[in-house]
């Protein structure tokens, strides 16, 4: 239990640093950035305390907002993703997911893929909706969101299978 806590704290810090130092600077085609920092929420232990996840996700989003001067956009989308995560587990792995030991970072099955995809989509859609509230560049933001989703999805899968923890 203690080691999972440490792993998650380390993941939190490393993902934010990687996001801020590297992924925010990609600016593919001038302005498209991936957001693989939400891997923290995707990889959070399945059976862990739900309020803990909500608070951690809020903190994660708020830190991103601090670095990006973006108000509360990241925080809102992270909290929404954290809240809906159990439903996505049920959707992707079936009703009894809680009794099985669902592990995201293992061989890529259709279930795992659909879970990651729907999580990223949710995060980006909330992000997208809030940006629309702020401005009125509808098509521009929609275009960014679609490309960013694809970009994030590819990177998340890549990261998961690059840093797959050694099994003991």
């Amino acid at each position: 239990m203690n080691s999972t806590l440490l792993i998650n704290i380390a993941r939190f810090i490393i993902l934010i640093l990687a996001q801020v130092a590297f992924f925010d600077k990609i600016n593919f085609l001038g302005y498209i950035n991936p957001y693989p920092y939400i891997l923290f929420i995707i990889l959070y232990p399945v059976n862990a305390n739900k309020n803990g996840l909500l608070l951690a996700s809020f903190l994660l989003g708020l830190t991103m907002d601090m670095f990006n001067n973006s108000g509360g956009v990241h925080a809102a989308s992270c909290v929404t993703l954290a809240y809906l995560r159990p439903s996505f587990f049920r959707f992707a792995f079936g009703l009894s997911y809680e009794y099985q030991t669902v592990k995201i970072n293992e061989r890529l099955t259709p279930e795992r893929f659909s879970f990651i995809l729907i999580s990223i989509l949710t995060h980006h859609i909330v992000f997208f909706l809030l940006e629309i509230f702020r401005f009125s560049f509808f098509w521009n933001i929609l275009f960014r969101t679609v490309l960013s989703t694809i970009f994030t999805l590819l990177l998340c899968i890549l990261i998961i299978y690059m840093f797959k923890p050694a099994k003991n």
């Binding site: 309020n51 708020l62 601090m66 670095f67 973006s70 108000g71 509360g72 909290v79 954290a82 702020r134």
Partner: peptide, 29 residues
Amino acid sequence: LFLLLLLISVFLTIQSHSFHKSQVITSAN
């Protein structure tokens, strides 16, 4: 908890939208 946190973040988003000197969380720290 979820609604509370969501409300806070939406509030922060709207705050940052209203013009000038309104941002609570900035990278100047």
